[in-house]
Every structure is written in C-alpha cells, then in structure tokens.
Design a protein around this nucleic acid. Structure first.
Length: 106
DNA sequence: GTTGTGACTACCA
DNA sequence: ATGGTAGCCACAA
C-alpha cells in the first residue's frame, strides 16, 4: 500500500475537504483516504500534524459522536469551541452524527 | 529485535 | 444497552 508519508497526506487531504459545520468519523476519513480499517492511523496522522498545519482537525470525531479526549481536557474544550463556532450543537457532550455527519462526496 | 501505547472500530457475550 | 476483546498500524522506549 501507500508509504506512510503518502498515507498521511491522503488523510490530511480528506480532512481538508470536510465542509464547514460538518463532522466526519475517523473510520470515514480512513475509508475516503483509501485506508480502510485504519481509523487509528487517522488519529495518529492528526496527532502528528506538522507545525504549519491549517487543517480543520476539529471536524473529525469518533464514531460515537464524542470527542476522543478526556472530558474537560484542554484539547476537548478547544475542539468543542471550534465546532460550536461553526454552529455544531453539543448535546450531553455528544454530537448528533445523523445531523452533522459529512455526506460522502458521491 | 520486542513490547507497550494510542485523537479507533467492529464484533460478540 | 453495556463491556470486553480482537484487529489495525505507526512510533517510542
């Protein structure tokens, strides 16, 4: 399959395409990036973002519609704020995926 | 080289 | 519904 660096770029490319005000799951991003079953790698790719990133990483959440951070943590609050700034509503620390999930570009 | 960990999911009890 | 387990893969120690 693709070299690791290329896989990261594919992931970043997909994340960059997530529309404003919508979210995608790690698994979905992995699939769209041509990396099925590698949701974990997506998390890793985002964790390993270069310093000059300008990527909407906050639009990627886990399949439960929750943030993959400890509740109340710094990253948690940051991601939540960024999403709320885009009009995404949190209900009980969760997002309604059926409403905000990214419609895969046919 | 092996082992453990992590911004994950799917499957099964 | 909830909780444990297995599969995935890159990376640090």
């Amino acid at each position: 399959m693709l070299p690791t660096s290329t896989a990261y770029q594919a992931i970043w490319h997909v994340v960059a395409q997530i529309p404003y005000g919508t979210v995608a799951t790690y698994g979905q991003v992995a699939r769209l990036a041509g990396l099925p079953r590698q949701a974990r790698l997506v998390g890793y790719a985002l964790h390993r973002l270069p310093s000059d990133h300008t990527l909407p990483w906050h639009r990627v959440v886990n399949v439960k519609g929750q943030l993959s951070f400890p509740l109340g943590g710094d990253f948690y609050c940051l991601q939540r704020d960024l999403l709320m700034a885009e009009g995404v509503v949190f209900e009980q620390d969760k997002i309604n995926l059926t409403q905000y999930a990214w419609q895969k570009t046919a």
